[in-house]
Amino acid sequence: MKQGHNTTILIICISIFLILIPLSIFTGYEPISPLRLFRAIQQNDPTHSALAIEIVLFHRIPRTLITILVGTALSIGGVTFQALLRNPLATPYTLGTSSFASLGAYIAYLGMNSFLSFIPNKYIPLSHLFAFFFAIGEVLLILILIKTRPKLSATLLLLCGITLGMLANAFISILRYWATPDKLVFMERWWFGSTQVLGYRSLITVSIVSIPAFFLLWSYSSALDQYTFDTEIAQARGVNIAKLQTHLFIIVSVLTAVIVAETGPIGFVGLIVPHATRYFVGSSHRRVFPYSAFIGGSFLLFCDILARKLFTTEIPIGIITTLIGVPAFLYILFGKNFKEWMT
């Protein structure tokens, strides 16, 4: 890929952000125009200006930022898992982390005001806490299971994760069957995923995990190139396959656990963005990581704006990502460059 080509893509990415971020801040149920915000700040009148400023400061800005970060995290997670599992259909959810997170959240919803009420939930909602620890529990379980095998293979990891995910889904079905309608509403909401946040707690949590994870994963770029080219050559060139697999699995799983715990299982970003990115910038991970972060962040933000704007009431972002993602993905699959990216 030529240098000029890279710069063009970079400029496009940055300008997309410069358009989307203000758009996101001024889109929502409460109409706030830049003019209204400007007046509100100028007036400095606590009764009139407070609402606009509060909405922008504690709803719109954190929501915009967390949406970008979640899009970024799911995309780089998808890039890594597709490489790690040597499977173009892999997503950050493939190994069951999101299913276990959902199971944890559902248990929390069921027990919120009854058998789990002894757990303090002043700072972090119980559902987020449970989602995170269930997801981490599954990761540990996989790690223990694969340690019993002499050799870790991508297929083994894949089957192990998918099977455990199915187990979690079976438990989820039981819980949904038992749940009362008022609890089911919570569960449905969770299942669709949402980046609607209040204040900065979620944003801080997601940043603490996803920003270091990005740089960590990026540092594995060359090794991942070798690994996806051929595992045996990679090994002969000094890549420690087992170590690489374990490290990447842990990094992405923790990342996914935190993201899903905070926003629910937002689908499709982790599958389509890596492919779209490779379609634009090639397969070298040194480029794929930063560009998929850009594309993933802007794609999810775009979907979130649509989710707020498309109908009079907000619809879940997970539905939008799929609605836009499927045609875009099919275009890449059946478009003229199909042969180029599918070997």
């Binding site: 070798q226 000094g238 397969s283």
Partner: peptide
């Protein structure tokens, strides 16, 4: 050791498309 000995297996299984230049450049890894 890996700088002194290079190995080419009989079959290789790349999963993503790469150009000739990229593949040769990957040899610089060790």
């Amino acid at each position: 050791r890996i700088q002194k000995i290079a190995f080419l297996p009989q079959n290789i299984f790349p999963i993503f498309p790469l150009t000739v230049f990229e593949i040769v450049a990957m040899g610089r890894f060790p």
